[in-house]
Simulated scan of single mutants.
Amino acid sequence: MLTRALIVVLAILNLGVASWWLLRSEPAPAAAAKPATGVAELRWLPGGTDAAAVAQTAAAAPTAALVEREAAPTAAVAAAEAPAPAAAPLAPPADAPKPAEAAPAVAAAKPTEPVVEKPAPEKPAAPPRCVALGPFADRAAATAAQGRAGSLLAPARLREQPAASGSARYRVLLPAAASREDAQATVKRIVAAGLSDYYIISQGEESNAIALGQYRNREGAERRIAAVQAAGFQPRLVASGDAGQWWLEGQLAAGSEPAQAQQRSGAAQQRSLECTRLR
């Protein structure tokens, strides 16, 4: 069985080789090699011509074709090595920016350093100024002047300047009654309230008025008035003799002048005052 298979394979191989020999084409003749550029071509000259003489003739007088072939590469190399003609400068377009105009653009492209603004030096604050306005006849007049001055004096205070001679007197009085009987009735009420040191004025402009004390300084008179008011009465303070004077003292507001404060308060005079005295 194996033998038969080998025989069949060999037969198939023989048929394939025979078909190849029958169907193959004739080989093409080899192309003649072309001589290299710049090399003289060797030719076979029949008739016993001396090869050495032919070679000398070819070297001494190259054919025209060889000269043309050698001149062509030389011209190409010379053309390649020749410097190219300088091109004419192109005129700039009409809308091209001038160098002076382009400079700001270049400057703008550069990063700018942040500008640090130095704070303006603060002006030293002006020292405070204080004044005394007056004189006023009594406390009520000085209080009214303080109200008129308003914000021009802040802070402000009232100060009494006692008389130099020491002859000032301050009396505490109840208003005059309509009759003697009414004055006596008021005295009974005063006694019932626990107050003492009183008497009824019997003559003069203050007739039927009730005097509740006379004092040499205002502080004592004001304490007496406070006690009488606590008992339910409304006394008044009357200054007599060489009474003291009242002054309005305070610190001037920023930007105001002493003359302005004096005019607004209605004071007759104004004096410079040390601000430490107001503390």
Rank of each mutant, 00 (worst) to 15 (best):
M1I: 08
E70Y: 03
A145P: 00
L237E: 05
D182N: 13
V191I: 11
L2D: 10
P97E: 06
I12R: 12
M1Q: 07
Y215R: 03
Q184K: 10
D50Y: 00
E101N: 06
E181D: 13
P93V: 09
I200W: 06
S207T: 14
A103G: 06
L23A: 11
L10R: 06
L237N: 04
G16I: 15
A163C: 06
A79F: 07
A253F: 00
R271I: 11
A211D: 13
A5Y: 09
V187T: 07
E219P: 01
S265K: 03
L66V: 05
S265V: 04
K34R: 10
A36L: 15
P104E: 08
P128G: 06
D242Y: 04
F233G: 02
G232N: 08
R271M: 12
P46V: 07
P92C: 01
Q146M: 14
S151M: 06
A230Y: 03
L90A: 15
T37D: 14
T276F: 13
A28L: 14
L158G: 02
G250C: 00
A52P: 04
V116S: 05
V9C: 12
V131C: 01
E205M: 07
V106K: 10
T3D: 14
S151I: 07
R264D: 04
W44K: 12
W247H: 02
A140T: 15
V238K: 08
Q229C: 11
L252P: 00
I225N: 00
K110R: 11
E160C: 03
S151E: 12
K123H: 02
A243G: 03
A61R: 10
A144V: 01
G166D: 01
G47H: 04
R43M: 09
S240K: 14
S165Y: 06
S196T: 15
L248Y: 02
S202V: 11
P97D: 10
G16P: 09
A31R: 10
F136K: 11
M1E: 06
A227I: 06
E160D: 07
W21C: 07
E205K: 08
A61F: 05
E26K: 10
A126R: 13
A137Q: 11
P62G: 04
Q263D: 06
A28I: 11
A71C: 01
A80N: 02
L158V: 03
E81H: 04
A254S: 13
A267Q: 00
R169V: 08
A105F: 06
A100M: 09
A145S: 12
D138K: 08
A193Y: 03
G241L: 10
L248R: 05
P128C: 02
G47E: 09
A72K: 09
A261V: 05
G213Q: 05
A18M: 14
R159N: 09
A259M: 07
R279Y: 05
S240D: 15
L22S: 09
P89E: 08
Q161A: 05
K98C: 01
E274L: 15
P29I: 13
A102L: 13
A226F: 01
